[in-house]
Each structure stands twice: as C-alpha cells, then as structure tokens.
C-alpha cells in the first residue's frame, strides 16, 4: 500500500481521534463522521440511487464502525469505506431478492434544484436509470472512478483487487452506459 505524507498525517490524526473516543470521549466520533461522510454518501448514493437509502446505509455503517472502533488497524477511512461498500452490496442483493423494480420506488427522480432546467433533470434521471442497470461491480467501479474521482491504484487498494481488473470493469461500464444513453445524449 502506497501511503503519501498527507495520507500518513491523516491516518495519524484519525488514530488520535480513535484513541480519544476509546478513552471515553464519545463526542469526538463526530469528527470522523464529518471528515468522511460526504465521500461515503456519494458512494452510497451512486450505488443505490436513493438519498434515503444512502443515508440509512451511512448511519448503520457509522454505528457499526463505532461499535468495532477498537478493532481498527491502519487506515480508518479505508476500513469504514469497506463497511459502507458492503452495506451497499447487501442492500442491492436484498433488492434483487425481493424483486423490487429499480425504475419505480428505488430510483430517485433526479437531484434537481429549482434553478436547473427540466431538460437536464430528465437527462440525470436517464443517467441514474442507466447506472442502476449496470451490474453492481461495474457500477461500483464506475462510481468510484467518475463520481468519487479515485485513482485505479486507490480503488484497487480499497476493493482488494488489481488495477487491470478495475480498468476492465470501468471500461465495460462506460461502454454499457454509452449503449444505454446514446440517443439521449447524442
């Protein structure tokens, strides 16, 4: 694992917070939540397509992280990312098992704000539906690359796979999305 100086500082800062929480300063756990919740939320939202589900997964993941905080070895951010990523995959498995339709209840209608025009809202809805149509592993790789902006090396580190395998997943995800969206974006 390649750890830059910035990452090393961050790991140390996280470890100090963890030590304080374990010493009884429960409120310091909010620092860890604040530090990583945005990136984790984007991941959960990209994977599930639902803001409500993403919030639930984050809440459950941080509670689990708190309960097992004494077991953290190394990077807290990588550890909690894996909890969230597994939470997303479990949710997707359950959704398949219960035969819920992606294009109804579980899909957000888009993340439009009032100032955005209707046309772009529709396009985002199409993008969300196309993402939902991808296999979870392809969606995960695409979201990590193009939404979270992670490098292939970082993705490989977090997912425990190779850079080559992840490149293949991202490339296949792009080509699948292009087939699904070609007409809308043409």
């Amino acid at each position: 694992m390649t750890v830059t100086a910035v990452q090393a500082d961050q790991v140390e800062a996280d470890q100090q917070i963890i030590a304080k929480v374990l010493a009884g300063h429960r409120e310091d756990f909010s620092l860890l939540i604040g530090r990583y919740s945005d990136a984790l939320y984007r991941h959960a939202l990209g994977m599930t397509g639902s803001p409500d589900v993403a919030e639930d997964i984050l809440q459950m993941s941080f509670i689990k992280a708190y309960q097992h905080l004494a077991e953290v070895r190394g990077r807290f951010d990588a550890w909690v990312f894996r909890i969230v990523a597994n939470g997303c995959k479990d949710w997707l498995k359950n959704i398949r098992r219960t035969h819920l339709s992606y294009d109804e209840d579980d899909q957000p209608s888009g993340y439009a704000t009032p100032e955005e025009d209707l046309d772009r809202t529709e396009l985002r809805g199409d993008l969300d539906r196309a993402l939902a149509a991808l296999a979870p592993s392809l969606r995960e790789a695409f979201v990590m690359k193009h939404v979270e902006g992670r490098s292939y090396e970082e993705m490989a580190d977090l997912l425990g796979t190779t850079v080559g395998a992840l490149k293949m997943r991202v490339h296949r995800a792009r080509e699948a999305l292009q087939v699904l969206l070609e007409e809308k974006y043409a």
């Binding site: 374990l22 939202l45 809440q59 708190y66 004494a70 077991e71």
Partner: peptide
C-alpha cells in the same frame, strides 16, 4: 451530469442523527 453527483454532500444533520443513534457505552475490544 456526473459533475452534479460529484458536488453532492451528505445532509447537514446526518452527523447529529448518527451521534444520537450511537450506543451510550464506550466501544471496547
């Protein structure tokens, strides 16, 4: 369109909600 997704933030009150839902006991190994 992906740029919109990149700008997404967790809800402002999410940290408070998680803190309120945490168990009272200090985690231990």
């Amino acid at each position: 369109d992906l740029e919109v997704k990149r700008q997404m933030h967790a809800p402002a009150d999410l940290t408070d909600r998680i803190m309120a839902a945490l168990p009272e006991t200090t985690p231990s190994l």
